[in-house]
């Protein structure tokens, strides 16, 4: 564990808390994409199967369970809890995630896992782990699309996405740190490439976020 990873994980937890708070305080789901969180739930459920096979640390296990439970709670709140449920606009959150996210990532993961380990080294848990890495890299897309449609970004919504992006950025620093200071450390290029791609998706958002913070004005996205 290093400071970048811990800060990254905390930023992720904070982002989830901000979103849950935002849903409860504002009592609406305007500008929030439930599809992004459904994708994250798939990511966590497929990646954290190692909860049953490998024990890393108590911290690691607790955080995994926390991510699964809190993400499920976000989805439940938006889809089933009134009055929030009736404010959720399905027609604005229409990213075709099976066709454009889940299926392509499943194909890509199958191909790269088979190339990497061959038929003899095939492992279903490993395949799902690789799939989750690919899927996480684009899971924020539905949220960014919804944001673009609403254009005016509500304060807490902006903060929740900011901390989500900060989490990914801090993970890049964490890998640089680990590569330099950890013995027995092995690179994993799929993890790195997906991590960088995921961070790049936030760049545009960061630009307008900081611009609005600097001017102290309202946060709106350009058309």
């Amino acid at each position: 564990m290093n400071i970048f990873r811990l800060a990254g994980d905390m930023s992720h937890v904070f982002s989830i808390l901000v979103l849950l708070l935002r849903l409860r305080v504002a009592k609406n789901a305007q500008g929030i994409s439930v599809r992004t969180h459904e994708l994250f739930l798939i990511v966590f459920l497929t990646r954290y199967l190692d909860l049953f096979t490998t024990f890393y640390s108590l911290y690691n296990s607790i955080m995994k369970i926390l991510y699964i439970v809190s993400t499920a709670s976000i989805i439940y709140t938006i889809k089933f809890q009134e009055p929030i449920k009736s404010t959720y606009d399905k027609s604005q959150d229409s990213f075709l995630y099976w066709q454009f996210a889940v299926a392509p990532c499943a194909v890509l993961a199958s191909v790269t896992h088979l190339i990497g380990s061959g038929i003899s080294g095939f492992s279903f848990i490993e395949l799902l782990w690789t799939f989750s890495i690919y899927l996480e890299s684009i899971a924020i897309l539905p949220q960014l699309i919804v944001l673009q449609r609403y254009r005016e970004v509500e304060n807490l919504t902006g903060n929740y996405i900011f901390f989500m992006g900060a989490y990914r950025f801090l993970y890049i620093l964490n890998w640089i740190y680990r590569a330099n200071f950890e013995a027995h450390y092995q690179h994993h290029w799929v993890v790195y490439i997906c991590g960088v791609l995921q961070t790049l998706l936030y760049v545009d958002f960061f630009y307008y976020y900081f611009k609005s913070k600097k001017s102290g004005g309202r946060f709106t996205l350009p058309t």
Binding site: R5, D9, H12, Y56, N60, M63, K64, Y67, I133, Y171, N174, W175, R178, A179, E182, H184, Y185, Q186, H187, H188, V190, V191, Y192
Partner: peptide, 10 residues
């Protein structure tokens, strides 16, 4: 033991 990037992370 060797540790691979991503494997022991969240």
């Amino acid at each position: 033991a060797k540790v691979t990037a991503g494997k022991d992370e969240l």
